[in-house]
């Protein structure tokens, strides 16, 4: 966004800059009331924006126009949505179980719809398919490492056989493979946090007009 020129825009920019520093006072100094205030303000504002956006989108944009066109069945999800609020009354709480059951059932059904091919079939085929003719040593290393790693990592979770002898070696290797995998995942997580922090460092400079906005 460009550097604002209107008073409200400038005020908003500086307030967000101050709130950011208030939040960072926790890691850079220690927990303090200023940090708490900023944290609570952030959570409250975020929930308010989420609530308003979701309510407006579902009621006015998604349900409103079809209802106006006479598609009365669009009122069913609205009723089911309101039934959720019976969670708050012990006497009629049982009514809230119907929308929850529909939500869980629909979510599970939709999730299962396309999960087998990309998550199982394609992954198995990809794991056991050797590199093409003329592939380099790195490709072959990856192929062997992933194939053996997958088998050993899966064997680590086979609990019906005792992990002894040949099984013991394989599961120990599987445990190492899992640790390497989790390490890589954690490394990526740290990388993401660094990128976010660099975004804040850039914003810090932009508000002070040290870096271009």
């Amino acid at each position: 966004m460009p550097y604002p020129t209107d008073p409200a825009g400038i005020a908003g920019l500086w307030i967000s800059w101050l709130l950011m520093l208030m939040i960072y006072s926790y890691p850079l100094y220690k927990e303090n009331p200023v940090y708490r205030f900023a944290e609570h303000t952030y959570i409250g504002l975020m929930l308010a924006i989420m609530l308003i956006t979701t309510t407006i989108t579902t009621t006015i944009r998604m349900v409103g126009p079809p209802l106006m066109q006479g598609k009365v069945w669009y009122v069913i999800p609205v009723i089911l949505g309101f039934m959720m609020f019976f969670l708050l009354t012990p006497r009629y709480r049982w009514l809230s179980r119907y929308p929850i059951a529909i939500l869980v059932g629909a979510g599970f059904g939709l999730g299962m719809r396309g999960v087998l091919i990309p998550n199982i079939t394609k992954q198995v085929i990809s794991t056991i398919t050797p590199p093409a003719v003329g592939a380099g040593a790195v490709d072959w290393w990856n192929y062997i490492y992933i194939a053996i790693g997958t088998i050993c990592a899966v064997m680590y979770f086979v609990l019906t056989w005792e992990h002894r002898g040949a099984m013991g070696y394989a599961t120990r290797l599987g445990r190492w493979i899992i640790m390497i995998g989790l390490g890589a995942y954690f490394g990526n997580t740290v990388l993401f946090r660094m990128a976010m922090l660099s975004g804040r460092a850039q914003f810090f400079l932009q508000v002070l007009r040290i870096a271009p906005m």
């Binding site: 990309p118 990809s126 995998g181 995942y185 997580t189 993401f192």
Partner: peptide
């Protein structure tokens, strides 16, 4: 994706 998703989506 964010860097964190690199290892999640690489198999896909």
């Amino acid at each position: 994706g964010i860097a964190m998703l690199g290892s999640s989506y690489m198999p896909f």
